[in-house]
Design a protein around this nucleic acid. Structure first.
Lengths: 238, 238
DNA sequence: TGAACGTTAATGTATAGACATTATACTTGG
DNA sequence: CCAAGTATAATGTCTATACATTAACGTTCA
């Protein structure tokens, strides 16, 4: 009686073996991977099974395949990384602190600034909200949000006095595309007051626009207390 | 004579059709996708072809499949985005500015700080470099880099006086894993002097550690002039 | 009613074979 | 020697079939 080699399906096993060899450096960029018919022999399986494994490695960008020539390890992407821009509430709770939201300002008006028109079209209705995210009672983030009432009219009837609009939006209108911009700014008087910090302190500013299909949903600018917050990201090659 | 419906392979066509329906909102999270045998009829093809399309939608996280029940559109990930941390040289050139690198400091020593030991092991040799990335002759980024000489001994023999070590490393030892941390800091006296800015100005600080397999390659801290730089990212659902 | 059990309809995996496509390698003619 | 044409070996796609796995469904029995 033989112990089972693995409980994984064979195509996953093959995929994983090759990926492991690339990540460990046994196979370097440019190196050749065995032909499909060679892997068929090695694993004692059909070509479709090998092909499934190699196809997935191709779509995930780890290898490159050329007819007649064979399959080769690709050069890694020049440089890019996956960044989690977290749900602030979840993030604060995960730190073991208590979460709170405080609404500072709310207004409804017709789009007139370029930014508002880009969101809701000329003359479209937008909802403007400014609020604070509190960690253990202390302000950590101030956010200013525009919501497109053409696409999310329900936002008008919701009470955001102590509920984060980001969280609500995510449940009601999940986005399909996001665009983010991260920069560093010095706190203005207003920001310093809201975050209970000093004027001029370094803050992370995140501006994010979201879409559902081709319709704009919301634009949010979040300003983080730079001394108390940073983004981290871990990225495995692809 | 019929015009060809599409020149894409059928499984890609099916994949794309369904993805399009999800992104446009025709199909919402939780909605059911037709059974494989229904799609076979719709597209007049075999089950393996339909299966290939649906399997890829599964691995990319767009749909979820349950035996006996069927396939369903998944809720989008809570929040995460792909951030390009660019190759600085390429980025500056892309802006239409000229690129330059200027070495400020170079030294070789045995690892003694905790950070250096984490990189090269206790007593391992490390190469320390400090340099400026110049855009059109003006400093845009100051970087401090530690290179693990245990894994990249060749770095000792390279002249970095006007060549960016990041660029060189990428070609010689491509990484397989990266960890990044982005935060906002106020410029110290030193930083202000290097970047020819004012003390206290907001800067983006990016700390990045890279691995090849399980071996550490380098740690770099890059400080960007906050007034002249920001990261942008665009993210399509997965 | 409701808990246990067998049935069945869906997905998951794999096979063997076929033909299409294409870059490489080889051959031939100038 | 080089250019053009041809053969070939690899990947890309697709089919028809088979059996495994699993969760929903229906039925039976306490």
């Amino acid at each position: 009686m033989n112990a089972p080699v693995s409980n994984l399906p064979l195509h996953q096993q093959i995929h994983q073996d090759i990926e492991q060899q690339i990540r460990s450096g046994i196979l370097s960029p440019g190196d050749k991977i065995p032909f499909e018919h060679e892997l068929m022999e090695t694993y004692g399986c059909s070509r479709m099974t090998v092909n499934k494994a190699l196809s997935r490695l191709t779509t995930s960008g780890l290898i490159e395949r050329r007819k007649r020539a064979g399959s080769f390890v690709r050069l890694p992407k020049l440089d890019s990384t996956v960044l989690d821009i977290p749900d602030i509430e979840a993030e604060i709770l995960a730190r073991g602190e208590t979460y709170g939201f405080e609404l500072l300002h709310r207004s409804v008006h017709r789009a007139d600034t370029p930014d508002e028109c880009e969101l809701a079209g000329i003359g479209g209705q937008v909802l403007f909200l400014r609020g604070l995210h509190l960690a253990s009672g202390r302000p950590l983030v101030v956010e200013e949000r525009l919501i497109n009432l053409e696409t999310v009219p329900a936002a008008l009837t919701v009470d955001f006095t102590d509920q984060s609009p980001g969280h609500w939006l995510l449940e009601v209108v999940p986005w399909t595309q996001v665009e983010s911009q991260i920069s560093a700014i010095n706190a203005t008087d207003d920001i310093a007051a809201w975050l209970q910090g000093d004027k001029g302190m370094a803050c992370l500013e995140v501006e994010r626009r979201t879409w559902r299909g081709y319709e704009r949903i919301t634009t949010v600018t979040q300003i983080y207390d730079g001394a108390r917050y940073s983004f981290t990201a871990r990225f495995d090659h692809d």
